[in-house]
C-alpha cells in the first residue's frame, strides 16, 4: 500500500511517502489511520484529530469509511489551501 503525506501531516510524520503492508483486518480508512497511529509519536501527533485530516484514495477525495486495499495509493493531508 502506497502512503502519501502532505503539509503538516508530512512534517509531523517525517516522511512524504512510504510503502506499507498493513494487516488484513485493515479494510477502511478509519482502521488504517488507527493502525498508523501505533507506528510512532510523529504519526500519533499528526493523526490525533481526525477532524483536521483529509483523505484521498487513488487521488479521489473520500471519507473515513471508504474501503482500502493493498494496491491503493492513500494520501493523508490537512485541509487544502489552494489559490
Amino acid at each position: 500500500m502506497q502512503l502519501l503525506y502532505f503539509g503538516w501531516v508530512r512534517t509531523k510524520i517525517g516522511s512524504g511517502r512510504e510503502t506499507l503492508d498493513p494487516p488484513a483486518e485493515i479494510t477502511d480508512v478509519r482502521s488504517l489511520v488507527e493502525w498508523l497511529k501505533q507506528r510512532g509519536d510523529g504519526y500519533q501527533e499528526a493523526l490525533q484529530d481526525l477532524e483536521t485530516i483529509r483523505v484521498a484514495v487513488n487521488q479521489e477525495m473520500v471519507d473515513l469509511d471508504a474501503l482500502v486495499s493493498p494496491s491503493d495509493e492513500i494520501a493523508l493531508f490537512p485541509p487544502m489551501t489552494g489559490g
Binding site: 502532505f6 503539509g7 503538516w8 489552494g82
Partner: peptide, 14 residues
C-alpha cells in the same frame, strides 16, 4: 473557480 480552488485543489502553503 477561485473560490473552489481555495478548498478543493490539493495545495498546502508553508
Amino acid at each position: 473557480l477561485i473560490d473552489w480552488l481555495k478548498t478543493k485543489a490539493p495545495f498546502w502553503k508553508l
